[in-house]
């Protein structure tokens, strides 16, 4: 086990249980300790009134500036609608081979698609999204294996299609590249 922790920083309200279960999934997948922290920033600084969304590039930089030196990787968890200038939305993003990433719960809820609420499914999606973005920080790029968590997903239905785990190829790459 690598003893340097991954830190998850939550911004805004999240159910305690949600955070703990997500942390557990990360701990399991990357075999390292996971710390949970609460972040307090004024999100209105990142709000783009024209798009009525939050700027993912700026938030990623903010999280980067909040990374603790003893933390191996840091991931910011949000519950707001994220965008980057060129795309209509993102579920999350990360610095490839970098030290941080962000992910949002906002578009992972069934209710936003006019369907019945399903907390369990939403949590599964969040876990996958968090592991996916952390995978990028560990240097993994998108994977062609349709079951691998590193497969690119641009729709929630695609997140549902893949597993919560890294495929063996990605796992091997991770082992050979312990960033």
């Amino acid at each position: 086990m690598n003893l340097q922790p991954v830190t998850l920083i939550s911004f805004g309200y999240f159910e305690k249980d949600f955070l703990e279960q997500t942390a557990e999934a990360v701990r399991h997948e990357f075999n390292c300790p996971v710390n949970l922290r609460e972040g307090h920033i004024d999100l209105s600084d990142y709000y783009d009134p024209a798009r009525r969304q939050y700027n993912g590039n700026l938030l990623l930089k903010q999280v980067d500036s909040m990374s603790l030196p003893d933390s191996r990787k840091t991931l910011g968890l949000f519950n707001v609608d994220l965008f980057i200038p060129i795309l209509t939305f993102i579920f999350g993003q990360a610095f490839l081979n970098g030290r941080c990433g962000i992910a949002s719960l906002y578009r992972l809820s069934n209710e936003r698609y006019g369907m019945a609420n399903d907390d369990k499914l939403m949590l599964e999606r969040l876990k996958k999204e968090v592991i996916h973005e952390l995978g990028h920080t560990f240097g993994l790029i998108h994977c062609l294996d349709s079951a691998c968590v590193m497969r690119s997903s641009t729709y929630v239905e695609e997140i549902d299609q893949k597993n919560i785990h890294l495929c063996s190829d990605c796992r091997n790459q991770l082992a050979g590249n312990p960033a």
């Binding site: 590039n57 200038p85 060129i86 795309l87 993003q93 998108h142």
Partner: peptide, 17 residues
């Protein structure tokens, strides 16, 4: 010419390999 566009696209495509 916009830096933020270049940056966003760059990181998007890099993640795709």
């Amino acid at each position: 010419d916009e830096e933020s566009v270049r940056e966003s696209l760059y990181s998007w495509f890099i993640e795709d390999g």
